[in-house]
Structures are given as C-alpha cells and as structure tokens.
Design a protein around this nucleic acid. Sequence first.
DNA 1: CTGAGTGTTCTTCG
DNA 2: ACGAAGAACACTCA
Length: 271
Amino acid sequence: MPELPEVETYRRFLDALVVGQRLAAVEVLDAHVLVTKEAELRAALVGATVLATQRLGKNCFLELSTGQVLVLHFGMTGDVGAYRDDHDRPRFTRVAFHLADGLRVAFIDPRKFGRIRVADSVAAYQREKHLGPDALDLSPEELTAALGRRKTLVKPALLDQRLAAGLGNWIVDEVLFQAGIHPERIAASLNAAEVSRLHAAIQLVLRTAIEHEASYQRFPLSFIIHAREWDAYPVPQSDDYKRCPADQSTIVKKYVGGRATYFCPVCQKET
DNA sequence: CTGAGTGTTCTTCG
DNA sequence: ACGAAGAACACTCA
C-alpha cells in the first residue's frame, strides 16, 4: 500500500485528527516497529502537542511542540486508523498514540516492516536517510541530471529514494507505461523527449493517485495498474485487465531489479 | 503447503 | 571504493 499517494492520504487523515491535540500516552503493542526506544519515544511524545503534519516521499511527520518530529514510515503494509475503545482497536495495531481528548491513533502494520522514530527535524531525517526531493517536487532538470549519471536500468533508478523520494514499485511501472518507456532501458540512455515524458508521467500518476486517495480501483482505465489484479477491475467479468489499455497487447510480467514488473511490450519498446 | 507481496537495508560480488 | 544484485526481514493471504 504505502507509496507516496497512500502516505499523503494518511497524512491528511492524521492532520485532521491530531493537529492541535496533546499526546497523552503512547501504547506500544509491538516494539519491533520502534527505532527510537520505547522510553525515549514516550519521553519525547507524552505531553507534547502536534503542531502540523508533513510528508516527504513515503514518510509522514508529526511536528511536535518540542521542536522534534515523529517520523512514521509504513513499510510494505502499514496503515493508520483511529478508535476510542480497546475493543475497537484495529487488528495489527503495533503502536497506539493516545490523544488528550480520548481518541487513539493506531499505527497498523501486519508485516512489521514499518518504522517509528523521533528525529530532530524533517531536514535532519532527510539527510540521514539520503532522501532526494519529494517526487512531486522533482524538477525536469533534476530528473535529467540524475538519470544522466546512472548506467542502471531505469526502473531501479527511479525506485532509488535518493533520486526522488516516494516512487514505489507500482508507481514506477505506471509512470514508465504512461511515458512509453521500457523498464529495462539504461537510465542514461533516455533522450530529452523521453525524460520530459517521464517527468510529465510522474506528475500525472502521483496527482491522479492522490486525487483518488490511492484507491486503485477508481484509477482511470488507461492505467496499467489494473493488470496487477489487486482490486476488482471496474468492468466485472472481463479479462481486459490483462491487456494494454492503449493497444490491447498482452501485458508482460517479469522481474526487473528483483521486483515484479508489468509493462506493454508494444508501447514500451526495449531499444 | 507454497509462493508472492506496495519497502528498506545489509551483505556479497564484481 | 563503488555500484549493483540478492537476500533478509515478518507475516498474511490466495
């Protein structure tokens, strides 16, 4: 789930619930997701008020009245939820943040690849993690420069959070499809027109996904994401999802850079 | 029972 | 020394 659009959706959810609120308690149900030690986390959070939320790539931040920030990274299966009674606590809640008004915010993560920590600032965390600019803020010039110095395949290059923060596996497939670029092209071999299409596609895919609150089944039929069969295809009882929305070619699935990759062999030529 | 999975990080290898 | 490929992490669900 949690690529940039999902995390932006989580951020908006949290923003509406926690900004202006004081944190009354931190309940750790599974310390595995903690990077900052439990006692230290509690000391940093309890009594602090949340001033604002931020997002950089796949990371969500809660700015605290103490000047520090709570950093949430959702791994592969992270989610957020809100509840009031223990008995309504969502399954797989690993940490619960209790607000002064009684509401509880759940950090939900079945697979436990998510991470929670306290950092001194967003900028300090970005430096420590070598995160590039947020993918929505990446300029065409930055993209051109970053791809130009890489001899790697373009898909792994785009997944590298140092290039731009927030692009994940399905988004990169969608971006490459929308730009008509094969995932195994060498990054530095893209010409100016291709890099330009790539930049436009990053904007299109991210903005579309955020607009639909990252709910895949509501994405346009012109998106290749439907080939992944994650959600019910908008047209029931149809096998069309296995075909390219542009030319009906059969979508190819193969592993690129160790990740499942879907593309149209006709729209995205290798040479 | 087996396998696959939306992310990151560490290790290994060239 | 550096990049890149591969494995590991932990767990659910199909």
